[in-house]
Design a protein around this nucleic acid. Sequence first.
DNA 1: TAATATTTGTTTAATTATTCACATTGCTAA
DNA 2: TTAGCAATGTGAATAATTAAACAAATATTA
Lengths: 213, 213
Amino acid sequence: MFIKNLPHKTVERLSQYRRSLLMILSKEKTHVFSHEIAQMLHITPVQVRRDLMLIGYSGNLRKGYDIKELIELIGKIIDSERGQRVAVIGLGNLGKAIISYFKGKRSKLAIIAAFDINPEKINRVYDGVACYHINQMAEIIKQNNISIGIIAAPAQQTAEIAEALVLAGIKGILNFTPKALNVPPFVYLEEYDMITSLEKVAFFAKKNDERFK
Amino acid sequence: MFIKNLPHKTVERLSQYRRSLLMILSKEKTHVFSHEIAQMLHITPVQVRRDLMLIGYSGNLRKGYDIKELIELIGKIIDSERGQRVAVIGLGNLGKAIISYFKGKRSKLAIIAAFDINPEKINRVYDGVACYHINQMAEIIKQNNISIGIIAAPAQQTAEIAEALVLAGIKGILNFTPKALNVPPFVYLEEYDMITSLEKVAFFAKKNDERFK
DNA sequence: TAATATTTGTTTAATTATTCACATTGCTAA
DNA sequence: TTAGCAATGTGAATAATTAAACAAATATTA
């Protein structure tokens, strides 16, 4: 399914729509209105309708959108037809959290390997995911056609890990360490730092508090 | 320090600037140019200069910005003078990851309590943070003047937890569960879902891959 | 001392993202 | 049958964000 240049924010929201739709889908509820989706995600109904317009989906004027159909369509757009395989680098608390949290959630996107340097973790299976030593990364990644890496290791090692991932042929990286990375343009990079999120909350909480006093 | 209506994105970047500056600050390196900051964070130097302009900071034309001064100024703007206290709800892998990761990182923002329902965790100290039973939340939060809550619990319980947090007088919530919350307008809410991030990476990785083929 | 190079600070322009406004549709019911 | 209502779909307007462009400043060097 080709839709040219979907905006970044729309892609994010499509993922959120699907997530929400999967939660409300049931025998009784087969259709949903834009304002219902909007309410679930704290956005406006227009936003929803515009996003659906961008992916060329039309709803029913009286019943709203067919939940099942919409879930499928979003899948066709944001998932890769042949599926994508994911590796987690760093099997500490964060790595484990990611694996457990993600388990069985998406059929087209599966975490199939973890890497660490701790001998106690290597060659064991955590929550269905096998853990290997970091220096087997290139090998395992190529063997299993893994195209996405999630870095959940301590910050110091981030740069070398990223370099190794790129060399191994990875196509996208999600970096949870606070160390910003440099990757070539053909690798998509997304960085998330909890501290930034928390500081943002702290800032606006403070501000809100002053305003509502 | 009052600066009227700093854009959301600027607030985020200020946090990132400080993080990066803290990493490079040393005896040898006391000043930094806008393009250096920009490079560390994959943004443009103009962006950096504009943000610094918004917070009223002036650099030295030849030496760039005084790192120490800038760190301090950012602190004055985004930190609360009297500090803010944080609680983590859910002491599973994610909760633990957050606590370890955050430990000692910021003086004005401290995680001082965790809540869970697992008896094995309650009344123990994890990484310097005491864990209490969830039904003690209101009490502990008020006692310790905790103003920010991080929800890292299983998705099902998210709504009640949030409600309890709001009732206990919390001012900001960072929600890591995939369940979107509803909170009153005087509580600042930030939601982050790993799956959305991962799916975004997957989508653009796929797209990139097609483009660079 | 004058020319050059480099960097900041800021105005203006461009781009991206969101919302408004409203035509259109189709069901309901008077 | 027609008026009213509640949705969708979308062009146009607005808002937010980012980038371009360039004047001003100042150290360096020819």
